[in-house]
């Protein structure tokens, strides 16, 4: 169990525009703790923008984000240290080794030496990156690179972890390993928020939120949602919608 009370997030009627392009229009979602929330949608549907707004990296043009700690309203600034983020873009330093990355984030998060030693050993063991601690990030494979990003995010034992397309550009075996790492977090009561453009991954989540062109088109438990939409898979659901909008 992650230290501290569980965090939940409510998104209320959030709009965002870039110049004259409306990226998000009127998103309303609930992210409950202890669950893996998948934000699913095609490229350019507004997934990354929504995450950046949740993380305070962008301001919504309209609408609000409400944060709760143990069911009570809390300010983002208070919760910020407990929310970890792994951006979609390559965001690590190619010349810094795995060890140097971990030490850098240790100091940024203010982790005590003993807690760090334990966490480091645990993360290196589950990620199986221990033999590569001295290798610079620029020389890691796609899967190893993503695992390092995840390790840096998990180092501070967050209560919320936000992952933007963690499995994009990763081979199938590493993808499965990454998902296994994420499942371990659920056991610790962490709110996991993950976006993916791989629709087959949607079924791995506890709850999915389907986003298309900046709007939520459906939200719920994956199986129930598919039954509701009378589709066998998320692939089929999105393909049908794409065909429907093309024929309009």
């Amino acid at each position: 169990m992650a230290a501290g009370e569980p965090i939940s997030i409510q998104v209320r009627d959030v709009h965002k525009e870039f110049r004259r392009f409306e990226a998000l229009h009127g998103i309303t979602l609930d992210f409950d703790p202890g669950l893996m929330h998948g934000i699913i949608g095609p490229e350019g549907s507004g997934k990354t923008t929504l995450l950046r707004i949740l993380l305070g990296l962008m301001r919504p043009a309209q609408g609000r984000i409400l944060y709760f700690e143990g069911g009570r309203p809390a300010s983002f600034d208070v919760l910020r240290p407990h929310i970890a983020y792994m951006p979609q873009a390559q965001s690590l330093y190619p010349d810094l080794s795995i060890e140097e990355h971990l030490a850098f984030f240790r100091d940024l998060y203010g982790i005590q030496p003993r807690a760090y030693a334990e966490k480091r050993a645990e993360l290196l063991s589950v990620s199986r990156l221990a033999p590569f601690v001295d290798r610079p990030a620029g020389q890691l494979s796609g899967g190893m690179y993503k695992k390092l990003g995840l390790m840096c995010a998990l180092l501070r034992s967050p209560r919320v972890i936000v992952l933007d397309e963690p499995t994009t550009g990763v081979d199938p075996i590493s993808r499965r390993e990454l998902w296994e790492l994420l499942y371990r977090l659920l056991d610790q009561g962490i709110l996991v928020l993950v976006t993916t453009a791989y629709l087959d991954e949607a079924e791995r989540c506890s709850k999915v939120h389907l986003i298309e062109s900046g709007s939520v088109i459906a939200s719920g438990e994956p199986r129930a949602l598919l039954d509701d939409q009378k589709a066998r898979s998320f692939d089929e659901l999105f393909l049908r919608r794409a065909a429907g909008s093309a024929s309009e």
Binding site: R52, L55, P81, A84, P87, Q90, S91, L92, L108, G110
Partner: peptide, 13 residues
Amino acid sequence: ENGSMELLLSTPV
């Protein structure tokens, strides 16, 4: 340019 600012800004620094 290399995208690390996004990660850096999401930390307590």
